[in-house]
């Protein structure tokens, strides 16, 4: 590994730390401007019948009556030492809450990405090698997938495969088949983004001279697709994959709710509705870590796919064809 690469890596890690800290502070500020806090909101539930004096005593225990600046400083000081704090909603350590659900979301997101890639590749392959009418139909799939909300896909999949065909049980949401169908619901809209870019690039590459030469040699369709069309088309696809990670995380909020899975998405949903600041700050920071890591990974993969791309300084990034 040369010194140029080391400097590049150090610069990227530093950028990542700044992004994560900014995300942490930004989340704090956004939640702080909202009215109320989770403790007061719970205490003000009319069922409680608390007096104002009782409410203010409890709010004071949580330090929520102190100036926002003081709260931010304390929270940030804790964060840099690796302490994510305690949830205002559940009173459990945030690290424990995230640790309990992270695995489930990673499995769902990875499965959904796999489903999305397989679908996108199948669509890409089909548009090149199926009969004209079928290929034209396939070309409309990405737009169709994009316009299908994943909660609708999820509800239909549950209705058909869980309730009618009995292939999985909704109360065992982490089971293999349940995870597969959740991944399908989450992966379909994501596959559209990848397929759109892939189709455009495949069209572009298919029109190149080298592709005509390769075709004239008479390789099989699969070989022609994989070696001569897919590989040069995959650089922008890698960029898109790095971008759709965000979509996977946001889509998980809905998908996990529909399929009854307990993951980061459902934790976000519960924390947003209750303004659970420490949990939200930790999750936004975690999302920032994931984004930075995935983008870094994408940058590192580029030179492997296209030798024209060089790290550090003059980088020739393949443009996404219009």
């Amino acid at each position: 590994m040369d010194s140029g690469y080391a400097a590049y890596a150090a610069r990227r890690v530093l950028q990542a730390v700044v992004v994560i800290l900014l995300a942490y502070v930004f989340t704090f500020l956004v939640i702080s401007v909202l009215p109320g806090d989770p403790v007061t909101n719970t205490l003000r539930n009319p069922q409680n019948g608390f007096t104002e004096e009782q409410i203010s005593r409890i709010v004071s225990y949580y330090g929520l009556d102190r100036p926002v600046g003081v709260q931010l400083w304390e929270s940030l000081s804790r964060f840099v030492t690796g302490d994510l704090g305690v949830s205002l909603r559940s009173n459990l350590p945030v690290s424990r809450m995230i640790g309990e659900v992270l695995g489930s979301t990673l499995v769902l997101a990875a499965s959904a990405l796999a489903v999305a890639l397989v679908l996108a590749l199948a669509i890409g392959f089909g548009t090149r090698f199926l009969p004209k009418r079928a290929a034209r139909l396939l070309r409309s799939f990405p737009s169709l997938f994009l316009s299908l909300p994943n909660f609708v896909i999820g509800l239909v999949l549950i209705q058909v495969f869980a309730f009618q065909l009995g292939l999985f049980r909704v109360i065992d949401a982490e089971g293999g088949l349940a995870t597969f169908f959740a991944a399908v619901a989450l992966g379909i809209p994501v596959s559209a983004r990848i397929a759109e870019v892939l189709i455009t690039n495949l069209d572009h590459e298919a029109g190149q001279e080298y592709a005509a030469v390769a075709r004239s040699r008479g390789p099989g369709r699969a070989r022609l697709f994989a070696r001569h069309l897919l590989k040069p088309s995959s650089l922008p696809v890698v960029t898109v994959i790095a971008v759709v990670v965000g979509e996977l995380l946001s889509g998980a909020v809905i998908t996990e709710q529909i399929f009854g899975r307990t993951g980061i998405g459902s934790l976000v949903q519960r924390s947003v509705t209750t303004q659970d600041l420490p949990v939200l700050q930790a999750i936004v920071s975690l999302a920032a870590v994931v984004f930075v890591a995935v983008n870094l990974l994408a940058d590192l993969v580029y030179p492997l796919l296209d030798p024209r791309v060089r790290l550090g300084g003059k980088r020739q990034k393949a443009a996404v064809p219009a």
Partner: peptide, 21 residues
């Protein structure tokens, strides 16, 4: 007794109808 969170009301009732809960 297993108490399981299923946020979507239609999924809860359909699960009882399909003998899953």
């Amino acid at each position: 007794i297993t108490y399981k969170i299923v946020a979507e009301p239609s999924v809860r009732t359909a699960a009882v109808q399909s003998h899953q809960a």
